[in-house]
Nucleic acid binder design. Sequence first.
RNA 1: GGAGGGGUACCAAAGUGGCCAACUGGGGCGGACUGUAAAUCCGUUGCGCAAGCUUCGUAGGUUCGAAUCCUACCCCCUCCA
Length: 414
Amino acid sequence: MGERGRKVLDLEKEALRQLDILSHGAVDVIPKEELLEKLKRSLETKTPLRVKLGLDPTAPDIHIGHTVVLNKLRQFQDLGHHVQLVIGDFTGRIGDPTGKSETRKQLTEEQVQENAATYRAQVFKVLDEERTMLHFNATWLSSLQFAEVLRLGATVTVARMLERDDFKKRFSENVAISIHELFYPLMQAYDSVALETDVELGGTDQTFNLLMGRTLQKEYGMSPQVVITMPLIEGLDGVQKMSKSLGNYIGVDDEPKDMYGKAMSIPDELMVKYLTLVSGLRKDEVEALEAGLVGGTVHPRDAKMKLAHALVTRFHGRTAAELAQEAFVRVFQKRSLPDEIESFALEAERVALVPLLVRAGMAPSNSEARRLIAGGGVKMDGETVNDAALEFEPRTGMVLQVGKRRFIKLDVQG
RNA sequence: GGAGGGGUACCAAAGUGGCCAACUGGGGCGGACUGUAAAUCCGUUGCGCAAGCUUCGUAGGUUCGAAUCCUACCCCCUCCA
């Protein structure tokens, strides 16, 4: 075999190696052969692949659900490829995609920039900044001619569009769908055309949109992108997919203690999934834990503590994880006070408990505060309060507690 | 454009003149149990200490009294064109 032949063989081998890494953990790679082809060509021509991920500009907080996809992007980067992050600022300007009565507030240019900055800060906890390009899709979408838009519209039928899960659902449940919403998948697909994307990533819920990119790229005579879908993870409730609007998420910017606590509150059934997809633990470590769980040698609580610890370590470092764990054990397992309690300054000599709870932000209204007291959910210095009309003389250092996790320490001025 | 159905609290869904701050389920919150898991059980879920006040698409009207009746408007759905 000649020099040249050997080289080709090495390329082939390397491409297969990359394919293997990149497909791992993915739900689908559509189609796999094309990815292999693209990888080979990339190696041959020493041109990195362009791997795209679209981001919604209205919800700038990244949660660990997003990191499933980000991790995959990072793998691409580690293999020398480039990431195209597309901020859907144009989409954000159009407004209301949910068809609800209230039109979504249009984002101003400033807000978009602000959100983009937030994204950048959070996303690079996972991604390699050097190999990431940030784009805003208004760059190309806002100037599209109507004729061009019609061309986009002509590539899909309504019936096909209504196959998309959320449209189908809304349609059958009689929830309004506006025409412009049908263009969303097309707009996202057009991003791939504009950026000549080689590979696009997304959650499985994005499959339809991602495939639309292929359709459109073909329409424009380009080689269609490969689509990689990643599993979605359920949020803290264990049922709904993790999302900010449902409030069931763990944000990458969450305080270490919150992050730890939230991780501890996930249902057991989700543990392995979290361990696999977001913990940052090595495969063998995860497998060991999993085996222990199945075999009954590892208490689920301890496995979950490992998960929580790993998660905090990943985003805040080891020291923070240790502290968070200690705090958790102290407050929830030993039921003693947290080491640090936010203090609340007040001046009065004599105060009524109910309005104080409201002022301190521990209850949304007086009525609610009363209910909490009636339900035995309020403690003063560890004693359950029974009297909703209670007045007392505050002393600095007194601790008020609502429920299991809300504490406040009084700080009497003067 | 024509005909019909419908908009009730966080969601779903009852209620069709006073007994409705509004049945019920889900969700949320608090409590018990526990591992801040699940399951289960209990309480609670507009504001107000209370008298009471503001809520049933929006704006008016009838009535002693309206989520319920009338008028106009807005929105959604179905069938036809």
